[in-house]
């Protein structure tokens, strides 16, 4: 059966996440990151940040929820039972700090079949409350047996 590609080019509405100090602390702790700029506002300000700053990979916290409507969209048609996360690209711009409101907008950029597997590629762009880009991401999901 040929893979369904109708959703290529489809965009979904942006969704906004408010960054907070305690969430940054929780994320940094889970990853074993110890730099005080992620825990202590005074240390963060002394290092030149406006507030407690997120580690780069904190982007999953603010961007992942925005991806769900795209990945779950029946028009995309992903079979979750056999889906794996195949690859990931993150490109960072402005840092994310506590108090930021970050809006992430997903788009489907590619759907193709290769070696009996379906490749579903999404791109997202995340901007903060000042319109500065904090992240561009490419999310590749692979579905076996399409």
């Amino acid at each position: 059966m040929a893979i369904k590609t109708d959703a290529i080019g489809k965009e979904w509405p942006g969704s906004t996440y408010q960054v907070g100090r305690e969430k940054i602390k929780e994320y940094a702790t889970a990853l074993g990151i110890e730099n005080p700029v992620h825990f202590d506002v005074e240390a963060a300000r002394a290092a030149g940040f406006r507030d407690v700053v997120a580690p780069p990979m904190f982007c999953v916290v603010y961007a992942l929820p925005a991806m769900a409507p795209a990945i779950l969209d029946p028009e995309v048609g992903i079979n979750f039972a056999t889906m794996v996360h195949g690859g990931q690209v993150f490109e960072w711009g402005e840092v994310a700090c506590s108090g930021d409101e970050i809006t992430t907008t997903p788009k489907c950029v590619e759907i193709y079949e290769k070696d009996g597997k379906g490749f579903y590629v999404f791109e997202s762009v995340s901007v903060n409350q000042d319109g500065e880009q904090v992240l561009r991401a490419v999310w590749t999901n692979i579905v076996r047996g399409v």
Binding site: V37, V53, P56, V84, G87, V89, E91, V95
Partner: peptide, 11 residues
């Protein structure tokens, strides 16, 4: 946290 500009991986 400002140093890393891009990271691409395959799982």
């Amino acid at each position: 946290p400002r140093a890393l500009k891009r990271l691409s991986v395959q799982f």
